[in-house]
């Protein structure tokens, strides 16, 4: 009995507590992110933004959530019901499981696996299924067009994301996420030597999360709301939560790959007083602000322009940069030893 407790139950409870310790703040962060986005967009457009529910409108997101929760979940009669319901769950689930390998500080990570970066890449490449399944199962023309668009778009931008990750990994010499941050501790953060890759990664992250200016799968002006058309109540809310959790995840990934994760900008006294998770949070917040800023500023891309940018500009350039990075590392004998 004691063995059962010490080998199975106790570690199980600890892991469950760790998971809750990440998911609960994450969901709160998603709620706050919607508020943050609406407030920033309002400020940029000289409006007030949400200001009624709670002090400064802070509880607006929870009011929206409660409203969605009490609405009826409509299942279209001609929809493929099982897949129709699985799709939003899948989107939401995938946006949560990726956090298992994100380090918040030295050693503060649920699962410190050797292939962490590949795991993140694999999970983000699965994100397309939520949308494709939703679009197909709705059995309706706008969602279907949206599913086709998103399948092509997300696969295209994954390729350049892959090459960007390869350049970073060439400089790190390990696939472990914590090692990526540690490699930036001694030298400079990677966004300085790999600046063009940083920009490409961020733009690809916008495309990968279906955010403006690449939100073609849900372009409200042409596809009404794309794959979300037939969804209501909590099924819609899960898509919404998943999309915003993915935004936070991609910002976190950008922070880890290029902005030194939990590291302070300078390794001297006033900066080192602030704990690592707070630095990580600040970096994510700055990147999220850019996400919103882009949304408030840029018009939507046309679909052929999107494809051209992905395949004819980003792909050749990132391929060139992989070769260049590898060449420089070999020429100056900087290849990290494993």
């Amino acid at each position: 009995m004691a063995e059962l407790w010490s080998i199975y139950l106790l570690p199980g409870i600890i892991i469950l507590a760790q998971i809750l310790a990440i998911i609960v703040p994450l969901l709160l962060a998603v709620a706050m992110l919607t508020y943050f986005e609406r407030k920033i967009m309002a400020a940029m457009q000289l409006r007030m933004g949400p200001n009624v529910v709670g002090p400064f409108g802070l509880l607006q997101a929870f009011a929206d959530g409660a409203k969605l929760f009490f609405k009826e979940t409509v299942l279209p009669t001609s929809a493929n019901k099982i897949i129709f319901v699985i799709a939003p769950m899948l989107t939401f689930l995938l946006s949560l499981v990726a956090w298992a390998v994100i380090p918040f500080d030295e050693g503060m990570v649920i699962s410190d696996i050797n292939v962490g970066i590949l795991y993140l890449f694999a999970i983000s490449s699965l994100g397309v299924y939520g949308i494709v399944m939703a679009g197909w199962a709705s059995n309706s023309k706008y969602p279907f067009l949206s599913a086709l668009r998103s399948a092509a778009q997300m696969v295209s931008y994954e390729v350049s994301i892959g090459f960007v990750i390869i350049t970073v990994l060439l400089c790190v010499g390990s696939l472990n996420v914590s090692d990526v941050v540690r490699a930036q501790a001694d030298g400079v953060w990677f966004f300085i030597p790999l600046f063009p890759m940083f920009i490409i990664f961020f733009i690809s992250a916008l495309a990968e999360t279906n955010r403006h200016p690449f939100d073609l799968p849900e372009a409200e002006a042409e596809l009404v709301a794309g794959y979300q058309v037939e969804y209501s109540s909590m099924t819609f809310a899960l898509f919404f939560l998943g999309e915003y959790a993915n935004m936070i995840l991609m910002s976190g990934l950008t922070a880890i790959l290029f902005l030194g994760g939990w590291l302070p900008p300078f390794d001297i006294a006033p900066f080192t007083w602030i704990p690592g998770p707070i630095w990580f949070f600040l970096k994510i917040s700055v990147l999220l602000f850019v996400f919103v800023w882009v949304r408030a500023t840029l018009p939507r891309y046309r679909y052929d322009q999107l494809m051209r940018l992905g395949w004819k500009v980003f792909l050749p350039f990132s391929l060139f940069w992989v070769a260049l990075t590898a060449g420089v590392l070999v020429a100056f004998d900087l290849v990290p030893q494993t």
Partner: peptide, 8 residues
């Protein structure tokens, strides 16, 4: 396997 087969 996940990246190549499932993802692409």
């Amino acid at each position: 396997l996940v990246v190549v087969y499932v993802g692409a």
